[in-house]
Design a protein around this nucleic acid. Sequence first.
DNA 1: CGCCTATTTGATCTGATTCAAACAATGTGG
DNA 2: CCACATTGTTTGAATCAGATCAAATAGGCG
Lengths: 249, 249
Amino acid sequence: MPSPTEDHPLVRKLKSTTELAEDEVAALLRLPLAIVDIRANQDIVRQGDRPSRSALLIEGLAWTYSLTRKGKAQVMAVHVPGAIPDLQSLHLTVMDCNLGTITPCRFGFIEHSALRAICAQFPGVSHALWRETLIEAAIYRQWMVGLGQQVAYSRMAHFFCEHMVRMRAVGLAVENTCSLPMSQSRLGEILGLTAVHVNRTLQELRHDKLLSFEKGQLVIFDWPRLTKAGDFDSYYLQLRHTGNEPESL
Amino acid sequence: MPSPTEDHPLVRKLKSTTELAEDEVAALLRLPLAIVDIRANQDIVRQGDRPSRSALLIEGLAWTYSLTRKGKAQVMAVHVPGAIPDLQSLHLTVMDCNLGTITPCRFGFIEHSALRAICAQFPGVSHALWRETLIEAAIYRQWMVGLGQQVAYSRMAHFFCEHMVRMRAVGLAVENTCSLPMSQSRLGEILGLTAVHVNRTLQELRHDKLLSFEKGQLVIFDWPRLTKAGDFDSYYLQLRHTGNEPESL
DNA sequence: CGCCTATTTGATCTGATTCAAACAATGTGG
DNA sequence: CCACATTGTTTGAATCAGATCAAATAGGCG
């Protein structure tokens, strides 16, 4: 029986990493959201923009990416529901990267003024949001280890582990299955690999019976070996143990 | 004639990115610092630690790095004086990476309780510190572009550009010269390259007359071409224009 | 069916690593 | 002041992970 607050993606997300008092939850539930549905492959904010509101991802997958002068894209982060991918713009006026949708998404836009007000009134909310941005930085750090030190096989294994754990943290994974609706070439963009190499690496992972990834569904068969292959340990996600995670964390 | 506040590395650093009111500056100047000198190649905090204070880097160079299970190191950030490299620990209990010295360093340790107090009393300080952590994340993002998309030549060019601009922002660069006291192999650790490849790449940069890097001194000869080679644009550092930067930003 | 997109396979190329060794610079103790 | 160790720089050759180029195959779907 999910409590009413668990229907609110932001509250659920913040609660997965930070303890919140009741009045803080209540205030968060009162935050005015401008709900907008956006189709896949659209940019929400672009490098150089100066947004006056931040986007709460309610449904779908989004990503943060940057373009080099030669037009090559580097993906920095994949966002799952509950995230506020451009929360940074609350304190950094100019966007230094792009935020776009991967799948069709539902966003709830929150005015910066409303965020500032709630932060001023509830230090616990301010703390939780600051913490969110710090966790995102921790995910970046982990991602850098993959980019700099790991071969494709490990990097991909790590990504699948991270995605599963993050989806689970917001209640979007059942057992060792969750949705990951994208093509192999899209996955390649995320991992910084060519579609060709993604395909070959996926074949290896499949051959090693670690997981299956087809039709937008990710199923992990062998957590222990996959986490080992990806050098994955979820500590950096700073998740609280809320009692709804299965055997392995 | 430097104003007295400019002698305080933290104030100087924060002022380079964020406007501060007088009472905020005064409060920052009152922050109790436990000054400690630490020799080169020492860890300040390690992955798994739960620090109760953060380290203000007063003098020297430090870095944040992480180790893979196989013992390979990935450097995430190089810190210049004025930075609080482990400010994250104010809100994330457990360190997910290591902080160590590159050169001999002087640190001023600040109790988290003191930081929390000043943040509670001065929202502007809280804003400035949050902003610092967000700028660090922006630097991460930029670094990821280099790791994922750029060849060694560009990546190195970018690093030199960034280091010069950041040193300049805290008053530690004269013209196009600043100190960068490290060996080529150390530079390789930072860039995620082998010492051999660093050497060959440096030869190229030298041959192209873009810069010189010897005896711990970095001299940039050709800003326009170096920034182009490194796909460098300082916007992501969110620097305010304080009027003490030379022709090119 | 034909069209379009996604997956798969093969061959070749390349930036960077690895291994190995020479060489230069600096410092240390006899 | 020289012998020697130590550390940093430079050069060469072999190897490798992944990119690139090209094309075949497999699905969905109007």
